[in-house]
Design a protein around this nucleic acid. Structure first.
Length: 476
RNA sequence: GCUCCCAUCGUCUAGUGGCCUAGGACGUCGCCCUCUCACGGCGAAAACCGGGGUUCGAGUCCCCGUGGGAGCGCCA
């Protein structure tokens, strides 16, 4: 926790899609770990697969990181801008004999794999072009551009002391000679990662545990290069609520879709940090607390499921307690998205205050506040049938009279007027409040009636009350 | 098939050999509050995958099994 500012972590997505929930959590853990130790966090775009990488995906990742407030301490790095560096290292490795050319064609490789699978063996490169002392290599075939393979040690073990999973041991015999440069000369993932992590002084590699099997190969490359190996922390996957892997089909939504669903970024972070990590029984954390408390000791090594209900609950906690000034811009985003004119209604801060106890998401809040910014499109059928009864017409008339004579339009005044009407008729407040709700909101659900009417404003309240009374009379 | 990972309530988890007749949270159910919906309060049901060890003592350590998952690309 002291001035160990040598800590550097990175989040290294490949730009082939949006920033999904698993990536966001990995990014968060990386960010928190760096901040916790006074280190740096950086973002690296792994775009060596030119075929599949797109600018839209890069933008989507930035957008997601930005919305979550996960700031990189440096300008984002693109692997495609580092090709010269990769080529230099590959040339050095060829020279040093830690890498070699392989002239196998894809067809040969496919055939090799199929045969191995048929023999129930683990498919792997058989080393036919691997130089060995006393071994005579076949002459390079004409017209076959070679790939470059890493010469993985044939013996011994690779030991990973994973920050989350503990010690993992791999036998080098299980590892084959992976391709580090394609036939067209472009370097491949497992190689670029090593060079980048080395060059950028990454001290902790934090990534999904679908990468554990790559780790021993990468460590061997570090060693071949004489580079220091980073520590590793392999975070388990996030599964869908049914326990299956998240896929585009279900669950694997981009973080921006959670924004559209009405989540607050801080709530999203809070839910995510608790998915796999814990600090005793604490459920809610400020960003400062996350940073101060985060530790891999308390990160679970088993996969976890994304539970929408719990996520909603966390979001609701934030909506209820967050500074209105913080939620206002996000709420405004939703209202505008619904095509509402904010000038045509109350201050959104007041709306948030009135609604936040009864809304789990900002989207829900926007939907329930629609009536404040636009005309009613009609009454909810069941609610109208129940509350806009023949008896109610007269009550609405009385309310119009009582409310229009108020000197001021405050919760207290409105409250008194409404109660006055109820008491004069010896009715429970519900008998009066419910018809009002349906009349002004369109349905029987809203914040306390006095607050609702104050938000709506006198003019609109009286209009809608009158309209409802007319509606009742026209109907009967 | 091979290699690797994982395993406490439906879900997220606490638990680092005795404090565990297993705690918290979400969700569920009941009651209270109440002008609706909520908030809130109180209460309930609900879990250590199985079998062997180790130990005076195992949810906690070891082994085996079972069940999940990941990887085995000139993808990342």
């Amino acid at each position: 926790m002291t001035a160990s500012s040598s800590i550097t972590t990175r989040f290294a997505p490949s730009p082939t899609g949006f920033l999904h929930i698993g990536g966001a959590r990995t990014a968060l853990f990386s960010y928190l770990y760096a901040k916790r130790h006074g280190g740096k966090f950086l973002l690296r775009i792994e775009d060596t697969d030119i075929e599949r990488s797109t600018q839209e995906a890069v933008d989507a990742i930035f957008e997601g990181m930005d919305w979550l407030g996960l700031k990189s301490d440096f300008e984002p790095i693109y692997q495609t801008q580092r090709f010269d560096r990769y080529k230099t290292v590959i040339a050095q490795m060829l020279e040093a004999g830690t890498a070699y050319h392989c002239y196998c064609t894809r067809d040969e490789l496919d055939q090799m794999r199929n045969e191995q699978m048929a023999r129930k063996e683990k498919p792997r490169y058989d080393g036919r072009w691997r130089p060995e002392p006393g071994k005579t290599l076949p002459p390079p075939p004409d017209g076959v551009p070679p790939v470059v393979r890493f010469r993985n040690p044939a013996e011994g073990q690779v030991v990973i002391d994973d920050l989350i999973k503990g010690q993992i041991v791999f036998d080098n015999r299980e590892l084959d000679d992976l391709i580090i440069a394609r036939a067209d000369g472009t370097p491949t993932y497992n190689f670029c990662v090593v060079i980048d992590d080395w060059d950028m002084g990454i001290t902790q590699v934090i990534r999904g545990d679908d990468h554990v099997n790559n780790t021993p190969r990468q460590i061997n490359i570090f060693k071949a290069l004489g580079a220091p190996t980073p520590q590793y922390a392999h975070v388990s996957m996030i599964l869908g609520s049914d326990g299956s892997k998240l896929s585009k089909r279900h669950g694997a939504l981009g973080v921006m879709e959670y924004r559209a669903m009405g989540f607050l970024p801080e709530a999203m972070l809070n839910y995510l940090v608790r998915l796999g990590w814990s600090h005793g029984d604490q459920e809610l954390f400020t960003r400062e607390e996350m940073i101060n408390l985060f530790d891999f000791r308390n990160v679970s090594s088993s996969a976890s499921r994304f539970d929408m209900e719990k996520a909603y609950w966390v979001n609701h906690q934030y909506l209820k307690t967050a500074d209105v000034a913080v939620v206002a811009p996000e709420f405004e985003w939703h209202l505008r998205r619904m095509g509402l004119d904010l000038a045509n209604g109350p201050r959104i801060e007041d709306v948030i205050l009135a609604q936040r106890e009864r809304c789990r998401t900002l989207l829900e809040m926007a939907e329930k506040s629609h009536f404040l910014y636009d005309e009613l499109s009609g009454y909810n059928e069941k609610d109208a049938a129940k509350h806009l009864t023949a008896d109610a017409a007269e009550i609405l008339d009385a309310l119009v009279e009582a409310l229009s004579s108020l000197l001021e339009w405050t919760p207290e005044a409105v409250h008194q007027a409404v109660h006055g009407v109820a008491e004069a008729r010896q009715l429970g407040l519900g008998k009066v409040a419910q018809p009002i709700r349906v009349a002004v909101v369109g349905m029987a659900v809203s914040p306390p009636i006095d607050q609702t009417l104050v938000l709506l404003g006198r003019t609109r309240t009286l209009e809608r009350l009158t309209a409802a009374a007319a509606y009742i009379r026209n109907r009967s």
